[in-house]
């Protein structure tokens, strides 16, 4: 089983620290969601993983081997990102041919099927595509290259609801036909919640959370009830946020609940991933 490992990655631009002491591990055949607010350093991290830019310190390894200037390891990853690294004057079909040449394989059957479904003409030039179709074209490549780690940075940028839906279903189909690791960085958390198996939350240049989604959501609670009783019950718990409406209070907790009996007037429910993300990454949210 291949493993992609990040060890003590640090990166700054000028005086601004973007990534600080990042240690992470991505296992084979899982779908990860990389979440973070704007400017959290997600894209920087992904670019360091595939060696497009250098970390100030630290190392990225695949199966123990440093990926820096290492074709054998770089060849196992594909990063689809917002930045266009294809030449505007090249035809899409030519780009696919060259991609096959360099990756040493390409799923032509799937690419033709996806091109038909997304209604993209492969005889046109890359520069003629709209933002949405730039994303679609790069997604087609990402699903068709023979790599172990498919990394998607804002994959649905510019895609309409229909295309987004189609993309998610094709992603799952592709994963089911050919299991491999996907790392998806996105702002639309609700849309990927049911797709990802593991989540990594990046905040203030550090890893805030990295664990299976199920495990995380099992520890995220919303406790609703009269203010006094909610306050009494949540005393000593890891509170990550609160809401108030009249006399009703909702306290959000991340971590284990205590063994105290739950008052009849208090209700406990699990949080969804988006709510948890907002609470954990908002400026006043929780003690992390």
């Amino acid at each position: 089983m291949s493993e992609l490992k990040l060890e003590q990655i640090n990166k700054s631009f000028g005086k601004k620290t973007i990534l600080s002491n990042i240690n992470l591990s991505f296992s084979e055949n899982k779908i990860y969601g990389l979440l973070g607010r704007n400017g959290a350093g997600k894209s920087t991290l992904l670019n360091i993983i595939v060696n497009r830019i250098f970390a100030d310190s630290g190392m990225v390894r695949i199966d123990g081997e440093n990926i820096n200037d290492n074709d054998r390891k770089l060849d196992l990853m594909y990063l689809m990102s917002e930045v266009d690294l294809y030449a505007n004057g090249d035809k899409l079909s030519k780009i696919l041919e060259n991609t096959e040449k360099l990756y040493g394989g390409f799923n032509w059957e799937l690419s033709e099927k996806l091109a038909k479904k997304f209604e993209i003409n492969l005889d046109q030039k890359y520069g003629k595509l709209s933002t949405g179709y730039h994303s679609i074209f790069k997604l087609i490549i990402a699903l068709c290259v023979p790599v172990k780690f498919v990394i998607l940075d804002e994959p649905i940028l510019g895609l309409d609801a229909n295309h987004r839906d189609l993309f998610y279903s094709e992603l799952l189909q592709s994963y089911s036909d050919n299991p491999r690791t996907f790392i998806i960085s996105t702002h639309l958390i609700e849309e990927v919640t049911n797709i990802i198996s593991d989540v990594v939350i990046l905040d203030n240049s550090r890893i805030l959370l990295a664990a299976p989604v199920e495990e995380i959501l099992d520890q995220a609670y919303g406790i609703v009830g009269p203010q006094n009783e909610v306050d009494d019950y949540t005393k000593g718990l890891n509170i990550i946020g609160t809401d108030k409406m009249g006399n009703l209070k909702t306290t959000y907790v991340y971590g284990n609940l205590n063994d105290n009996p739950v008052p009849d007037t208090v209700q406990i429910s699990n949080l969804d991933l988006q709510k948890l993300f907002v609470l954990l990454t908002s400026k006043n949210g929780g003690n992390n």
């Binding site: 595939v50 060696n51 497009r52 200037d69 074709d71 060849d75 690294l85 030449a87 360099l102 790599v147």
Partner: peptide, 16 residues
Amino acid sequence: YENFKFLIQNGISRKT
């Protein structure tokens, strides 16, 4: 630089 962009996108190292 144009070639570098395309090659690094396709998993080719700087040395290669």
